[in-house]
Structure formats: structure tokens, C-alpha cells
Simulated scan of single mutants.
Amino acid sequence: MPLAASLPPSLFRSYSFLSGFKPKTHTLFPLPCYALECVPSHCLCTRLSLRPFFEHLRHEPLRRTLGVTLSTAAAAGVVSPNPGATVSTMSKKKARRDSPEGILRHQLGLCSKSGDLAQALRLYDEARAAATSLSVHHFNILLYLCSSSADPVGLERGFQIYRQMGLDGVAPNEATFTSVARLAAAKEDPDLAFDLVKQMSSAGIPPKLRSFGPALFGFCKKGDVQKAHEVEAYMASSGIEPDEAELAALLELNVRKGRGEGVYRLLHRMRVTVRRVSGSTAEIIESWFGSEVAEEVGLDKWDVRKVKEEMVKGGGGWHGQGWLGRGRWNVGRTEMDGSGVCQQCGEKLTCIDIDPVETEDFANSLAKLASQREVRADFMRFKVCVYTLLY
């Protein structure tokens, strides 16, 4: 299903700005359906005694047949050879639920759903007084609630709980570090939030996108361009791709600081990653093209042949040569008609190809998917056919 990839506003000067935002085609591959086989009902009665059932069977051949069937099912693992083991497992689960640790976990879960930090802290204090052992799950719920609080007392209690977690020897996980990073961001300390992400990586815990948010948004809010881009670089080295929210924060920071090269780079990164931006992001882009700084950035002279060559290499949608020309941008909001013609400038959107990097990724992904479905040794030749079709 082809998806249009354009910005809400039409942005243009002496050449088409929208040409840099190219459409993307998503292809839906048929996925295999797996049939679920129902287990015979008599095979599920693992906890019932079958002795009275056999005693009331008067038909000898039928009794033998059922006996062989059930014995075969038990050997295959369908019927548990030891019904007492199931009872024992259920008893252990019930004992864990009814233990002080299990009850505390349940009560903290209710506090998390309702956002009741005060009750969660009371439960924590009572558990400490009763010498109840707390797991990483208990601590994570408490830290999450503290990091979601706007109360300075709640934030301070969060750091106290985190320190106590270390004293108790409870190993933190990704959720722990992320919650403490949010605590640091709430205290307007993005340096600490970034340091916690580094500690996470040093401990062998892969960070997630949410782990970088407190540090990145904190530096953007403070206007620290250098450290914000350090976080962006660390994300890339960790194999984490930013979403629109992260890219929009970086873009707004560069627009605010009047950094034309940074805006250019982030717009192209957003073109590849986001494709279709939200209204709030479009407003940031509009503010850039309506600024005086945007009028001054750009080359007075450029190599036309080089620009055309790079556009062909890039699939026809962009050249990557930076801002070309200077002057005031005409920014307006408009609509496209059914044939893709802009109602303000009269230019028509053109269909552009995916760039070479995307072509390589698409071919590799398609060949991998196909090779998983087909195990013949010569099937990797399929990749060559893909390249032939794409090029």
C-alpha cells in the first residue's frame, strides 16, 4: 500500500522543497497460518483418578483400547505421569502469592495502576520495618511512581530507594536505570541521566530508546547542543534509532540556535526515518523556513552536474549537497489534488525511487525471509534476482 510522505505545509523557494520528502511503499507479505490441534478432552484430566472409570468398564476390548491410548498419551507427555507434581506446583504458586513478598507485589501493582505514590511509600516503609525481602520488581514499581511525581519529596524518596536497592544487593535492570534517569531529568540534571545510560551499558544491559529520553530531552531543554548530539551519537553506537519525538527535539534545538547545517542534516534524517511528520513537528519546520537565518544560509554557486548526479544516485528525491541558493522562503499551507498537484505552487509530486542503502536493505531482508521459507541450497540466488528487478 503506497503511503504519501509529505509535510502538512508546502515549503518551497525557487525549487521544490517537498521533493526531498519521498513516498515509501510498504509491501505486505503473506504470512503462514498454523492450525491449532485440539487435545482430546480425556487427555486433559491429569488430576482425576481413572481407576473407578476402568472398574465400571464391562467391555474388555474397549477397556484395553482406552488403556493403551492413555498409556501412549502419558508416554508422549500429553497426560502427566505424575499428577501430584501439578498439585505441588500449584501449591508453590499459591504459597508465593500468599507470602509477604507476594502480597506486597500485588499491592504495589495496584498503586502503580492508580498512580498512588503515597500509599506505595507507606507499603514500602512497612515492608522495611517488617524485614520483608524486596525484589527488583518491587523496587522498579516504587522508582517508577517516584519518577512520575512532580513532588520534590517524591523525587528525593526515589533516590533514597535506589540507594537502598544497592545496599540490599539487588541487581538493577533496564527499567531501574530508566526510572532513575527520569528522576534525574525531573531534577533538571541531564548529565546524571546520561551517566546512568552509560552505567547501564557498562553493566552489560542493552539500553532502549526510552532510556535515552531523559538525557536527550534534558539537554535540548537546556539548549546544550553539544551534549544533546553526544547523546544522539551514543544512541547510534548502541544501535538505537530515534523516533519523531527525539528528532523533533533535536531539530527544534538547532532551529533555535540558528544552526543551518544541523537543521539540514536532521531534516534529511527525518525524511528517511519519519516520512510523514506530525503537526507540531511541521510547526518547527515552518519556524525555520520563516526565520531570517534561513534566508542567509545556502550556496551562491554550485555544480549543477554534480547535483543532478547525486539526485540520480539518491533515487531522484534529494541531492545531499546542502542548501542551494539564498533568499526568503515562501511558506504556506496547501493541499494536493487527486493527481498530486499542489494547489498553491502548481508543482506536481513525482514518484521517486528508494535510495541505494534502502535498496540494499530491502534486498537483504527479502532474501532472508525467502531463505527461511525455502531450505534448498541454491535458493540464495534469489537475492541476485531481487537486485536485477530493483535496478
Score class of each variant (00 low, 15 high):
residue 244 E to V: 03
residue 252 E to C: 09
residue 241 E to W: 02
residue 297 V to A: 02
residue 315 G to N: 15
residue 269 R to I: 05
residue 308 K to D: 12
residue 280 S to P: 09
residue 311 M to I: 05
residue 279 G to S: 10
residue 278 S to N: 05
residue 265 R to L: 12
residue 303 D to N: 11
residue 275 R to P: 00
residue 294 A to K: 00
residue 303 D to V: 04
residue 282 A to H: 06
residue 288 W to A: 07
residue 282 A to D: 14
residue 237 S to Q: 07
residue 241 E to P: 01
residue 303 D to I: 00
residue 310 E to S: 08
residue 274 V to R: 00
residue 289 F to T: 03
residue 302 W to L: 04
residue 290 G to H: 00
residue 272 V to A: 15
residue 262 G to Q: 05
residue 238 S to F: 01
residue 313 K to A: 13
residue 312 V to H: 08
residue 311 M to K: 10
residue 253 L to Q: 10
residue 255 V to R: 04
residue 300 D to H: 12
residue 241 E to G: 07
residue 271 R to A: 15
residue 282 A to S: 14
residue 271 R to L: 05
residue 287 S to N: 14
residue 274 V to E: 00
residue 252 E to Y: 03
residue 269 R to Y: 02
residue 252 E to T: 10
residue 305 R to P: 03
residue 286 E to Q: 11
residue 264 Y to A: 07
residue 302 W to Q: 05
residue 301 K to E: 13
residue 257 K to I: 10
residue 252 E to Q: 14
residue 309 E to F: 02
residue 249 A to T: 11
residue 257 K to F: 10
residue 301 K to W: 04
residue 257 K to Y: 05
residue 237 S to N: 02
residue 310 E to T: 04
residue 305 R to T: 15
residue 255 V to I: 13
residue 294 A to H: 00
residue 305 R to M: 10
residue 291 S to N: 03
residue 273 T to A: 12
residue 255 V to T: 11
residue 266 L to D: 01
residue 254 N to Q: 14
residue 268 H to A: 04
residue 305 R to H: 12
residue 315 G to P: 13
residue 305 R to V: 14
residue 309 E to M: 00
residue 277 V to H: 08
residue 305 R to S: 14
residue 268 H to E: 03
residue 262 G to I: 09
residue 242 P to W: 02
residue 302 W to Y: 12
residue 252 E to W: 09
residue 298 G to R: 04
residue 274 V to T: 06
residue 303 D to A: 00
residue 315 G to W: 09
residue 261 E to Q: 11
residue 245 A to C: 13
residue 258 G to N: 06
residue 237 S to T: 12
residue 251 L to V: 13
residue 284 I to T: 14
residue 246 E to W: 06
residue 279 G to Y: 11
residue 264 Y to E: 05
residue 309 E to G: 00
residue 304 V to H: 02
